[in-house]
Amino acid sequence: MPFDILIAPFVEFAFMRRALAGIMALALGGAPIGVFLLLRRMSLVGDAMAHAILPGAAIGFLISGLSLFAMTFGGLIAGFAVALASGLVARGTATKEDASLAAFYLISLALGVAIVSVRGTNIDLLHVLFGNILALDDATLMVIALNTTITLVVLAAIYRPLVVECVDPVFLRTVSRAGGLAHLAFLALVVVNLVSGFHALGTLLAVGLLVLPAGIAQFWSRDLTRVIAIATGVAMAAGYGGLVLSFHADIPSGPAVILIAGAIYAASVLFGPVGGLVRRLRPGRHLEA
């Protein structure tokens, strides 16, 4: 019986196996990126970026169809254009960075939806907005795997300056010039992972597989290495659970994955040992020292 529910769908259907491979690759690259998004207080920036990259991905989509490569490239350009433009406006005028980013990502999102609907059909628009991991072809799978590989290699390379820049940016500036470069590389990785997430979860939910597992992990550990490991494990579990749920309950795969992650998040908020509600309200008798 458990075999029928948990394993049989993947044994029987090739598209389920492909989806599983895709979501595992997404989880592997996205979860650590999400942890740093959260630690840098950028989780909503990640959300904004997910919308901001839409016109670039849409133009790539129009030129070469559902080629993830063209969409990734277009998304990278659009993402950087928005990040750069909002940074320049924030520095050059009296506007604060969050306000200018909000303005630019909304413009960008509107532009993206307009581009897709001018040339594409409603189905294309649905695909871009909500994704469909059950329709991954081999080429797309390879690009997702490539993106994840790039993410992990680059993240390993910039790990130390990235961590120190989060904890003590002034100190990093006095010992090294790597901080700015690490920040830029990190932004690029965010965009790369969001574009990867496009196909599985769509522009609206792509950031979910980055940020939710990271938010969950913070309730379970105070150690960065463990937080990253937990986030990755949770992202994989949510991905697998979401696919199973989507198969049996016949709901779209993207929302199913995020809903499973959401359920784990709710449980963590309640029972997590690091700052969870239950621990806060019923801390137990105080210790001796």
């Binding site: 961590v163 904890v167 003590d168 100190f171 090294s176 105070r222």
Partner: peptide, 30 residues
């Protein structure tokens, strides 16, 4: 350089040992 109110994110999940060890940056680099 030790700034007046060091701009440290104290909620960051890093241990005392690792934080102090960043002082060796000049020798270790990235």
């Amino acid at each position: 350089y030790l700034p007046q109110s060091a701009d440290i994110d104290r909620t960051f999940p890093i241990s005392v040992f690792d934080f102090a060890a960043t002082g060796l940056w000049r020798r270790t680099g990235v």
